[in-house]
Write a protein that binds this DNA or RNA. Structure first.
Lengths: 339, 339
DNA sequence: TACACTGATGATACCGGTTGCATAACACAC
DNA sequence: GTGTGTTATGCAACCGGTATCATCAGTGTA
């Protein structure tokens, strides 16, 4: 394993020169640069990242925090996480940074762990899903001046910081827009996670788009459930009892959609003829049910990309003013809304 | 940000002593240790991982390789990956190592990337899903003497190395055992990914357990499909045309089960009364379909744990003889097999 | 010819730990 | 009192880079 001295000796130059070549210092003459590069290649030399980090006082990694209390929890949301992770990794890689995954499951030790990583110079910045974020964590991060970016609009906003999220409002609008265009008239909204920010935003989009089309916003058509299939089914059944009943429903996620579909089937109605259904999130399950589900597709990969870009900016300039980035949603039309 | 010198000065000892305390060197007297520890705490001192790594010539991270050609690929298998990752992280964390995620999507640059990470002392070992493994990669890894562990029984075995996998044979046996106990008589096997090692092993378990119960192995009941819902449905329909038809089926995964269920419904049969169904993999979807699916649960978290343990051993002693670790499957009984 | 300036390179002090070797104190044996 | 061993600690070289400052050759200018 050769080091910079070996290369310098072999090239007949000083280590400074080799270092300059490695870091694209413009002061190096063309000939010297070419020559040193050649020797580097011949030696198959790769600079030691720890020596470099020690010298520059910069870590070459960014941490993505996760929080799994129960290792057996098995949610579709993990598919989100997966894609976000890829988005982040891709951007970091291009910037010669690596991505480390850190589980902050135990809240008591999490602060200490974060400390160890940052103070120990293992990581330079942190990306945090909003679900993992706590006021306490924010305090630690800001106190330690650790650059961080949050994924998902935060509930806590005591201090300003960077975050990325899906444009949930736009998603709500797209859903309504599509249903109206497909000639559905009475559109219900069946959200999950009552009180959540994203549900609120989607609903706002729903309202504005209805209004924009001069259609009434009937509060009776707006429902919420716990996000589970059974709860969604019950709530959908209730909506179907209304007079007149809705002829379309926007569901908060794929599982809610399953519940809604069950209620619709039990009522003897047919999708999409009697009632249209459109779902937020685009999990593989959307293509496996019958009819296949029209979805508001959430580009989570792009969310990861944006998060990574934000953290890069922040690490380059920790005092930069804080930014927010919203990722556009898109609609994936399938059978459940094709009359 | 205090360093070891500050701590040494404050404690009135040499840096060697502080270092020894940090590394639990037994030569340090009780009093000195206590005193230095106190100063460390007071200063909130955390050793610089890069300086330590530079000095010890050891990286403090393990890489988990992934390979996503298409960022939009959205498979349930990613849920597996997610849990495996947690298992790995958990073990690494306890051993003061961090987990870095590396995408080797571009096969041309992947070797070089791996090189940079290992030669550049960013990582100490590598964990590789068998799907990402190529003969070329194995060559690079062994040539560079990089400790690595494979997740999933490898197809290539030119060189011996460590790997972990689910005990697929046991899974096949458990499925058959359960179905027989529940009084199903004619058990079909509908596998996915023809030619794959895991399908082969499960099938072997299926055969042995039938034989063990003195039941005939009817080759006509053994089918394969491409793993998709449509293909599974067609294949299941074919199986149902046999005389006599099967009264139970073991499906290779949850999606194949959906296809099978569709074929069964179209034939006018009822699950579990007319026909029992049991599926490999336990995704959230298994509890969302009706009837809910009895599954052979694959403890992927544990697979991650084992992989991490293997890589730890290997890094501690790179010349250790190679090991294989098989993770037990377990059965999750739900409605689809309760007569 | 002397002087200033610029472009290219070298010498070397860091960065913050670890660790082999030296040393000092002390106990015990002879 | 000298020798031997053990235990606890310090000194300083080293890990492999980076970056500051010094140096030096070459060029332009008065």
């Amino acid at each position: 394993m050769s080091n910079i001295k070996d290369v310098a000796k072999a090239a007949g130059v000083s280590t400074s020169t080799v270092s300059r070549v490695l870091n694209n210092n413009p002061l190096i003459s063309f000939e010297t640069r070419e020559h040193v590069m050649k020797v580097i290649r011949e030696h198959n030399y790769v600079p030691n990242s720890m020596a470099r980090g020690l010298s520059t006082q910069k870590a070459s990694a960014v941490a993505l925090l996760v929080n799994i209390e129960d290792k057996d929890t098995d949610s579709f949301d993990n598919l989100f996480f997966h894609k976000i992770m890829y988005g982040i990794e891709n951007v970091l890689y291009k910037n010669d940074l690596s991505l480390v995954i850190s589980n902050l499951s135990n809240s008591r030790s999490s602060k200490e762990r974060l400390n160890r990583m940052v103070q120990g110079k293992q990581i330079q910045g942190v990306i945090i899903p909003t679900l993992v974020l706590t006021p306490d964590l924010i305090k630690t991060l800001t106190a330690q001046k650790i650059p961080f970016v949050v994924i998902g609009e935060p509930e806590y906003t005591t201090v300003p910081f960077d975050w990325v999220d899906i444009n949930n409002m736009q998603g709500g609008q797209q859903a309504v827009q599509h249903l109206i265009e497909t000639d559905y008239k009475r559109i219900a909204f069946l959200g999950g996670e009552p009180g959540s920010l994203f549900n609120h935003k989607r609903l706002a989009g729903y309202r504005t788009m209805l209004t924009q089309h001069n259609m009434p916003v009937d509060e009776a058509l707006i429902a919420e459930c716990d996000g589970g299939k059974a709860g969604a089914c019950a709530e959908m059944a209730r909506l179907l009892e209304l007079t007149p009943p809705p002829d379309a429903v926007i569901c908060g996620n794929n599982i809610i959609s399953l519940g809604a579909m069950k209620a619709i089937a039990e009522k003897g109605l047919t999708i999409p003829r009697d009632i249209g259904i459109i779902s937020f999130d685009n999990y593989p399950i959307a293509e496996l049910v019958e009819p296949t589900l029209t979805t508001i597709d959430i580009n989570v990969y792009e969310m990861g990309v944006e998060a990574a870009k934000l953290i890069l900016k922040l690490m380059a300039n920790p005092s930069a003013h804080h930014q927010v980035s919203l990722i556009s949603t898109s609609i994936q039309v399938r059978e459940s809304t094709i009359k």
